Amino acid sequence: VEPFVCAQCRTDFTPHWKQEKNGKILCEQCMTSNQKKALKA
């Protein structure tokens, strides 16, 4: 199985991968920080 790479921070290690609607693969940490930024905006 090919390891995923986060589209935002380029890490290849995370407990959980998330896929955005646009198809980008993000690590759990980037997904969480993006959600917090969206709530602040």
Rank of each mutant, 00 (worst) to 15 (best):
A7L: 05
E28S: 09
H16Q: 06
E2R: 01
H16Y: 09
E2S: 08
E20W: 02
H16F: 09
I25P: 11
Q29L: 08
K18V: 10
W17N: 15
H16T: 11
P15S: 07
D12T: 09
F13A: 12
F4W: 12
L26C: 08
K24A: 07
L26D: 03
E28H: 08
T32S: 02
C27Q: 00
Q29A: 05
N22E: 14
G23W: 02
R10A: 15
C6L: 00
K37V: 08
I25A: 03
T32A: 08
C6V: 00
Q29F: 05
Q8E: 15
K40L: 01
A7I: 11
F13V: 14
V5D: 01
E20D: 01
E28Y: 05
E2M: 09
E2V: 04
N34R: 05
E20Y: 02
M31P: 00
K24Q: 12
E2H: 13
N34C: 04
F4L: 10
C27V: 00
S33D: 10
E28K: 08
E20K: 01
P3L: 11
Q35F: 01
V1S: 01
H16C: 11
Q19G: 14
A38V: 08
I25K: 09
P15D: 13
C30G: 01
K37Q: 13
T32P: 08
E2I: 02
V1I: 03
D12L: 04
K24P: 11
R10D: 10
S33P: 09
H16R: 08
Q35W: 01
T32F: 06
T14R: 04
W17G: 13
Q29H: 14
L26R: 06
R10W: 14
N34A: 07
K24G: 09
K18H: 13
Q8N: 15
K18L: 04
M31T: 08
F13Q: 01
P15V: 10
P3E: 13
C27E: 02
N22V: 13
P15E: 07
A7G: 14
Q8V: 15
P15R: 05
C9D: 03
K21S: 07
R10S: 15
K24R: 10
Q29M: 06
F13G: 06
Q19R: 09
C27D: 01
I25M: 07
Q8D: 15
L26T: 02
K24N: 04
T14I: 03
H16D: 10
C30I: 02
A7Y: 03
G23Q: 14
K24H: 10
C9Y: 00
T14A: 05
K24W: 03
E28A: 06
K36N: 12
K21H: 15
Q29T: 03
M31F: 01
K18G: 12
V1D: 09
G23E: 13
K36G: 09
P3N: 14
L39Q: 03
N34W: 01
L26V: 04
E20P: 01
P3M: 14
E20V: 09
N34K: 03
C27Y: 01
N22G: 14
K36S: 07
K40E: 11
C30Q: 00
K18P: 05
N22A: 11
V5P: 03
K36A: 08
V5W: 02
H16M: 07
P3D: 01
N34M: 02
E28W: 03
Q19N: 12
A41P: 06
K24D: 05
K40M: 08
M31S: 08
G23V: 11
C27R: 00
V1T: 05
T11S: 11
C30K: 01
L39K: 09
I25E: 06
W17H: 10
K36L: 02
K21E: 10
C6P: 00
K24T: 05
Q19A: 12
Q35M: 05
R10H: 15
Q35S: 07
D12A: 11
P3S: 14
L39I: 12
W17K: 14
A7P: 07
A41R: 08
M31V: 07
C6K: 02
V1K: 13
Q35V: 02
M31L: 03
W17V: 11
S33G: 09
M31K: 08
N34H: 07
V1G: 10
C9A: 01
T11A: 08
E2A: 02
V1R: 08
S33K: 04
C9W: 00
Q19K: 12
Q8K: 15
Q29P: 06
L26H: 12
H16V: 10
V1M: 13
M31Q: 11
C27G: 00
T11W: 06
N22C: 14
T32M: 06
D12R: 12
Q35C: 04
P3C: 14
S33M: 11
K40N: 11
T32I: 09
Q8A: 15
K18F: 02
F4D: 13
A41S: 10
C6W: 00
N34I: 07
E20G: 09
E20C: 13
K40W: 02
S33R: 06
Q19P: 12
K36P: 04
C9R: 01
T32C: 05
V1L: 06
K21M: 08
T14M: 01
C6G: 00
N34D: 12
P15C: 11
A7F: 11
K37S: 08
P3W: 04
C9P: 08
T14E: 08
T14L: 08
K40V: 06
N22D: 10
A38C: 05
W17D: 14
T32V: 06
A41E: 09
L26G: 03
V5N: 12
K18Q: 07
A38S: 11
N34Q: 07
F13W: 04
C9G: 03
F4C: 15
C9S: 00
A7S: 15
F13T: 10
F4V: 11
N34E: 12
C30R: 00
I25C: 04
C30H: 01
C27M: 00
W17Q: 15
K36T: 09
I25V: 02
A7E: 13
A41K: 07
F4R: 05
R10M: 15
E2F: 07
K37D: 04
H16I: 08
D12P: 06
V5M: 09
A7R: 11
K36I: 04
L39T: 04
E28D: 11
T11L: 13
L39G: 13
F4M: 15
W17A: 09
A38M: 05
T14F: 08
R10Y: 15
Q29W: 03
A38R: 05
Q35Y: 12
N34G: 05
N34F: 04
G23P: 09
F13K: 01
Q8L: 15
A41M: 03
C27W: 00
Q8T: 15
I25F: 06
I25S: 03
A38T: 15
M31G: 10
K37L: 08
Q8I: 14
K40H: 06
S33W: 02
C6F: 00
P15F: 02
A38E: 13
F4G: 10
S33I: 08
W17C: 12
Q29Y: 02
P3H: 13
C27F: 03
N22F: 02
E2G: 03
M31E: 09
V5F: 03
K36W: 03
I25R: 05
K37T: 09
V5Q: 12
K21Q: 13
P15K: 13
K21G: 12
P3T: 08
R10K: 14
K40C: 06
D12F: 06
L26K: 04
S33V: 07
K36Q: 12
G23D: 14
F4K: 06
C6Y: 04
C30S: 00
V1E: 11
Q29E: 07
D12V: 14
V5K: 10
K40G: 11
M31A: 08
E28N: 10
T32Q: 05
Q19D: 13
K18M: 09
K24S: 04
A38G: 04
V5I: 06
Q19V: 13
K36D: 04
K37H: 05
T11H: 14
E20S: 06
G23N: 14
K37R: 08
T14N: 05
K18W: 04
C30W: 00
P15G: 08
P15W: 02
V5L: 13
K37Y: 06
F13H: 03
A38Q: 01
Q19W: 11
